[in-house]
Design a protein around this nucleic acid. Sequence first.
DNA 1: CCAAAAGTGTTACGATTACACCCATGG
DNA 2: CCATGGGTGTAATCGTAACACTTTTGG
Lengths: 244, 244
Amino acid sequence: MPHGSTVHEVLTAVFQVRPAARTIAAGDGHHGPHACRTDELMVLLWQRALDPQKGTWSLPGGTLGDDEDLETSARRQLAEKVDVREVAHLEQLSVFSDPQRVPGDRRIASTYLGLVPLPADPQIPADTAWHPVSALPQMSFDHGTVVEHARTRLAAKLSYTNIAFALAPDEFTMSTLREIYCAALGYQVDTTNLQRVLTRRGVITATGNTARSGRTGGRPAALYRFTDSELRVTDEFAALRPPV
Amino acid sequence: MPHGSTVHEVLTAVFQVRPAARTIAAGDGHHGPHACRTDELMVLLWQRALDPQKGTWSLPGGTLGDDEDLETSARRQLAEKVDVREVAHLEQLSVFSDPQRVPGDRRIASTYLGLVPLPADPQIPADTAWHPVSALPQMSFDHGTVVEHARTRLAAKLSYTNIAFALAPDEFTMSTLREIYCAALGYQVDTTNLQRVLTRRGVITATGNTARSGRTGGRPAALYRFTDSELRVTDEFAALRPPV
DNA sequence: CCAAAAGTGTTACGATTACACCCATGG
DNA sequence: CCATGGGTGTAATCGTAACACTTTTGG
């Protein structure tokens, strides 16, 4: 065999919608009536302290163990290495198998998309940080491509599945849910229509409870929850639907 | 290490729409005006001559080589082992990584969906045969699950991409295309609407040529071709479309 | 009473489906 | 000239987008 060993690794793009930690220039105090600015979709990365590619940012992950399957491995890596346990949804993306994708021994990477719901704020190690998906730092190897795939997959599934359950808190107002969709999709979403679409499809259910109004007044919002806490396809066919 | 070696294998579910080779009871000579009966979606399988699971049917594939990536490997296996080279589209499905999925040394399987267009009729080895996806034989290991995933993926993508280019001949009539969609989806599709949907989306283009009418008469059909010969998403968002 | 936030209703539009009807060809 | 398959047109439907308007709260 011309090669040394081949190992199989797992890489996970962990996403969460989080308050944007940007330094806002003071004076720009006005928000449009539907501004999607406060929250942003972020991805969890750690910075390499050693070569190769010292200083670049990597996805959490590691080598697949002999007795675990990929999903188990992904969950283990997240728990052990970045202390993240609140992953509400984990799904496989594609495999990166180019023999030259990393220097040294061959590493075949199976990649995952992981979603962490809103209230969680895991303690993460010092070399680890959340980065806005819209402004990634210098990424290691092909990890930037993985994040891009993950973002694309998430945006697509927001449109025809209930996948947002894994980004939202247990109970939420429509405004909060709208923030989440805006952050994840990267464009404005109308609250009214969001409510109607998700209700029609049975994705969300009103709990009957209401939130208190904020300090600035305003009518108290009704609270909703996701009907299921597991991925469900709600609009399978864009066209050529099966006959009733 | 408690284990022997771990190998990475590639398995491909190769689909083609083919005439159903069923023994039809004579006398049932009538077809409904839109019968989707003549053609059927079939998958290429080979029968194991040795244990484990001797006699069961397997997907074509094999071990990943040291210097090739997964897609290259899949193409190589199909060319070498079942002599199939006319694969117009190949895409990754999921990875099967359960340590116990096959007896003996661990095998991690990356699975693929491959599509062969209509006019092709590759010479296949003696232990190999096309089987209707709707009536699979006794399958080896988890290969039945792979076929099921592949079928689901194909059906979904028929609805929002141009993936049918990889099942259709270069030039075709709408009737032929309808046969293909019916076979792949497993339910009736209206020719008129199929034409309109695909034309509106720019998926198919009229070539200007016409086919000759059959022996029984009938108006000659216009010929079409797919605009692209590579996968393209034509209807990304079922809902929550980005604002214009 | 005013601003702010939430909820409701209405309209318009786009895409798809279903189906009736007209056209061209071979026997 | 008639059966057969192909093509065109139209109406009904469904779901979503856009937006104006009403309701409820805090100051």
